[in-house]
């Protein structure tokens, strides 16, 4: 009965696609990102397109019209699977909530690569991304070193409950725990918003005049905090995470102390590579973890290369 239904559905889809002349390319990769707003996801999209083109695949992009809208991503995944793409690159908005749909799509025989936001479980081909806890630790250590191992630090958090935020903030705390003379005065939320971070920082400067350093879980918030610090004329070192170009420029110009690299381009590049290898019967490990580089004034120039001129990291170097 089930197979009968399925075959009817397949027939219907085939008929429909013939009728609409949908470009059911032989080698199509569907790429799912969370929103159109954050430049990070644009890096993922461009990285996927470039790597796919280099290997003879085509890509179709799926982005929710309302940023980070879970229900929309669920329907997009269901709709996309009807096109029967050869593989899916998937940045889940909520990995747990999406698990059942991912399961269904994977069972239909479409390999799915989990990118950036890690799912605890699910039938993914592999996970490609950075370890956010490690990124937080790298950033925290950079700040502590800059402060000479002592001082008063505030943390600016993103949206409470978001995994990226929790992991990075935990990383901040564990990174700072190695420096007993560094005191975390407070950890305040700014919801990943630049304006909120600016205002939170203005308020914190009022309540605690002697802040030596700021850790922000994303660069956009680090830049907001930096605006407040520069306007108030206080000396506080700012470290962020992500490596967006504006932050890298601020690091290069000595306005920000450092940021930790979280490259969407590299992730999606490697994810395409994983799809390509799997399609050619080669082994793909269960996880592909990139180690984030620390971006400082010395090496900032290397991170300001336009996307079009960036190259994929070497597969063997990352996997081994």
């Amino acid at each position: 009965m089930m197979t009968f239904k399925n075959s009817i559905r397949t027939c219907a889809v085939l008929a429909l696609s013939q009728f609409l002349a949908l470009p059911l390319a032989a080698q199509e990769i569907a790429v799912f990102t969370k929103n159109q707003v954050d430049p990070f996801f644009n890096d993922i999209r461009v990285g996927a397109e470039m790597a796919a083109a280099a290997k003879g695949w085509s890509t179709v992009q799926y982005v929710p019209t309302k940023p980070n809208n879970l229900t929309e991503q669920i329907s997009q995944l269901e709709d996309a699977s009807l096109r029967n793409p050869d593989a899916i690159l998937f940045v889940p908005i909520d990995p747990d909530a999406l698990a059942p749909v991912v399961e269904r799509v994977a069972n239909a025989g479409i390999p799915i690569v989990n990118v950036a936001d890690r799912a605890a479980s699910g039938s993914y081909l592999t996970f490609v991304g950075f370890d956010d806890v490690v990124l937080g630790e790298v950033a925290a250590k950079a700040l502590a070193d800059r402060l000479g191992g002592e001082g008063r630090v505030v943390i600016i958090e993103g949206v409470k409950g978001s995994k990226v935020n929790e992991d990075r903030v935990n990383g901040f705390r564990s990174g700072l725990s190695a420096f007993p003379s560094i005191e975390v005065i407070t950890s305040q939320p700014a919801n990943f918003q630049r304006l909120q971070a600016l205002q939170v920082m203005e308020n914190l400067i009022q309540s605690t005049p002697d802040i030596d350093g700021v850790l922000a879980s994303i660069d956009a918030m680090a830049l907001g905090a930096l605006e407040a610090i520069e306007a108030a004329g206080i000396e506080a070192q700012v470290v962020g995470v992500d490596g967006i170009s504006e932050a890298v420029e601020a690091v290069r110009d000595g306005r920000m102390a450092a940021t930790a690299e979280f490259s969407g381009f590299k992730m999606s590049c490697l994810a395409i590579e994983a799809v390509d290898r799997a399609a050619n019967g080669l082994d793909v490990p269960a996880e592909i973890l990139l180690s984030g580089s620390l971006i400082t004034a010395e090496n900032a120039g290397d991170f300001l290369v336009p996307l079009e001129e960036q190259t994929c990291p070497d597969w063997d170097a990352v996997v081994n």
Binding site: N35, V37, L198
Partner: peptide, 16 residues
């Protein structure tokens, strides 16, 4: 005024 205050603009600033 928003743009002038935060020194940047992106498409997502209005929704929140």
């Amino acid at each position: 005024v928003y743009l002038a205050r935060v020194n940047s603009a992106d498409a997502g600033v209005g929704e929140p």
